[in-house]
């Protein structure tokens, strides 16, 4: 345990930090500046396509948390089940995306939006219409490459931080 290099190491370190002083900060000032998330973002909330859903319940079975609840009517209309209730309790959802992978009819998608915090507990339980896609709740391209292509490219830090050490 000696001062092996009589302070040269400390001076080298100081030079490194000094050089960083003249670099561009990498901070993104969040509410004003936003990074674009991945095209496959598993954002908050699921997006559900009511027209394609056949209420087969595969998503509910795939869900590891048991978050999805489907109630179908016993009387089929036009040879299809009618979904009476499609309920997702996003409070328990872990956004693993297994339901989206499991859906055989491409009617369930991950959401692309994030800032979806709620004030009341009951608001995180989404049923039927609340799950439909809208301008505020776009669908992400998770498991759907065609959708992903249409989304803006993800911002990468590696593109911004050009300076090499």
């Amino acid at each position: 345990m000696k001062f092996e290099h009589f302070g040269t190491g400390i001076i080298k370190g100081l030079a490194v930090t000094l050089r960083h002083l003249f670099r561009k900060p990498i901070t993104t000032q969040y509410p004003e500046q936003k990074l674009t998330t991945s095209r496959r973002a598993r954002g908050n909330e699921l997006v559900w396509d009511i027209t394609k859903c056949t209420a087969c319940g595969t998503c509910a079975k795939a869900c590891p948390q048991g978050v999805i609840r489907i109630v179908t009517s016993a009387k089929p209309v036009e040879n299809r089940y009618v979904v009476e209730k499609f309920e997702v309790d996003t409070g328990y959802c872990i956004f693993c995306g297994l339901c989206v992978e499991a859906c055989p009819f491409q009617s369930l998608l991950m959401g692309y939006s994030y800032e979806r915090a709620k004030y009341r507990r009951h608001e995180v339980v989404h049923t039927n219409e609340m799950l439909l896609p809208s301008a505020k709740r776009p669908a992400s391209g998770y498991m759907y490459p065609k959708l992903a292509k249409a989304l803006p490219p993800q911002t990468l830090l590696i593109e911004r931080d050009e300076v090499k050490g």
């Binding site: 930090t17 000094l18 960083h20 002083l21 670099r23 561009k24 900060p25 990498i26 901070t27 000032q29």
Partner: peptide, 11 residues
Amino acid sequence: IGRFQIRLGPN
């Protein structure tokens, strides 16, 4: 210190 750490610091 913010700038040394390539952050902005309080602004």
